[in-house]
């Protein structure tokens, strides 16, 4: 059917964006396929009321944020532990060509990335959404305001507040000496 075929095109065109946005917002690859599917199904249901006032991407970002929020609520209910998306780089050590200064830098960068993602999950949902849309998706303040239904000033406030919290959280973690070598980190797992 012509309608279904064009919707498939919409999905194909925007699926990568939806997947990576959900990954960052939820902080886990768990159920991302199902979440992404839910995003597109909600978009399909909203299409009859779509008047072309905003881009499809604006709708998709708004829906993705809502779906991620629902997922957070579900996880809190189920009290599931999170597996960071950066934890799922099994065998990344084997990908390192040779042990040496480069490997150490890569390891440090990887741990820093882990720390940022961990701190991201401690932010409020709005702050997390604004940071993801601004930095990862490279949306403007106006586009983020439209997607989240917030005033532009509020978007700016959340952005700066979120970055400040991230910075302070990571600094606190570093000062407490949480940076452990990879071997010890693997032993402690999610403890």
């Amino acid at each position: 059917m012509a309608t279904d075929f064009s919707f498939e095109e919409i999905v194909r065109e925007h699926q990568a964006m939806v997947f990576r946005t959900l990954l960052r917002l939820t902080g886990s690859r768990e159920h991302v396929d199902d979440l992404a599917q839910e995003v597109f199904l909600r978009l399909y249901r909203a299409l009859p009321s779509f008047r072309g006032e905003a881009l499809v991407t604006t709708y998709l970002y708004r829906i993705a944020v809502n779906v991620a929020q629902d997922e957070w609520k579900r996880r809190r209910r189920d009290a599931q532990s999170l597996v960071s998306i950066s934890d799922e780089t099994s065998g990344w050590e084997e990908r390192l060509p040779h042990p040496g200064p480069n490997a150490e830098e890569l390891m440090e960068e990887h741990e820093f990335q882990l720390a940022v993602e961990e701190q991201m999950q401690r932010l409020s949902q709005v702050e997390r959404a604004v940071l993801v849309l601004y930095h990862q998706e490279e949306r403007t303040y106006e586009q983020i305001a439209l997607a989240l239904g917030l005033p532009i000033g509020t978007v700016r406030t959340h952005l700066h507040r979120g970055r400040k919290k991230l910075r302070e959280g990571i600094a606190a973690r570093q000062s407490e000496g949480d940076r452990t070598p990879v071997k010890e980190a693997r032993c402690t797992s999610n403890g």
């Binding site: 279904d4 075929f5 919707f7 498939e8 095109e9 999905v11 194909r12 699926q15 990568a16 997947f19 990576r20 990954l23 960052r24 690859r29 396929d33 992404a36 599917q37 597109f40 199904l41 998306i85 820093f112 990335q113 940022v116 993602e117 940071l131 993801v132 930095h135 990862q136 991230l166």
Partner: peptide, 19 residues
């Protein structure tokens, strides 16, 4: 770190399955 785009693994045929 925030600007680093995570690697996405989209299942084959995802768009067709959703449609």
């Amino acid at each position: 770190a925030l600007e680093r785009v995570p690697e996405v693994r989209i299942p084959v045929g995802f768009a067709a399955r959703v449609a």
